[in-house]
Amino acid sequence: MKRVSQYVALVAYVVFLAFPLLWLLSTALKTPQEMALTEPTWIPREPTLANFTDAFGEQDLVGAAARSLVVALFASVITVVISLPASYAMARYRGLVNKIAIGWVLVSQVFPFILIIIPLFMILRDLDLVNTLPGLVVVHVTFTLPFALWMLQGYVRAVPPELEEAASVDGASRLRSIVSVVAPLLAPGVVATLLFSFISSWNEFMFALVILQDPDVMTLPLTLVRFTGPEGVARLGPLAAASLMATIPSLIFFAIIQRRLKSGLMAGAVKG
């Protein structure tokens, strides 16, 4: 009896979690004619990929995806490059700085974005960075940094300091021991942080909305939202298709990170 009710509950959860996803998929595969039917259908009668090609045909969407890609690439690489040394410092010299950094991560969660975005907008306007992609890169780097630092310093901490000491006993310089001993072991952590920063930037909407007001420079999330005008049902198919494609990078990220997180690299390093 208990088991039965547990299964009923589990099925209810699965339905609640899955049905909007299935509906998105179903909408993406429908023809405009089928979309206009008064009785919506779950399974498309004539499944079509036309919506995906239509979405690719929209100049706006392709350009926006390209801009999102550029912004996310720059933002993630810059984030990792500047947070690597800082995360090393945080992990190796614990103390006041570490506490301040953690405190800032928490504070930046509590304060509403509006308090930061208004002055930030004014600063970027004075630097002529409003409506530019570099402006958005700067903002994305700044707001991904706290969490990227947090992630990376965890990975640094997992590299035993004894390994560095062993290298310096063998006559390696400080820098040399970091480059040839710590860096390879950090690779999985760097990849994970890079992906995380990439996804944060790729998905980000709020700052982009404020900073990019010119349709010619809008990123993918903004263009997707603009796509849902009052034009009616006809454009829902391509919209659903584009939304699905916009989700692919995040899905890849989650697939990778699940394997990466449990890699047994460390155990081998310490034993060897």
């Binding site: 049905f19 909408t27 997707l224 916009a246 989700t247």
Partner: peptide
């Protein structure tokens, strides 16, 4: 839902709630 961009979550539910084409 964690892996989805918030904008896509919003658009997806708009499709669910859509008065004519919604499920």
């Amino acid at each position: 839902p964690w892996a989805m961009p918030p904008v896509v979550i919003g658009l997806m539910w708009k499709l669910v709630y859509h008065p004519d084409a919604g499920i």
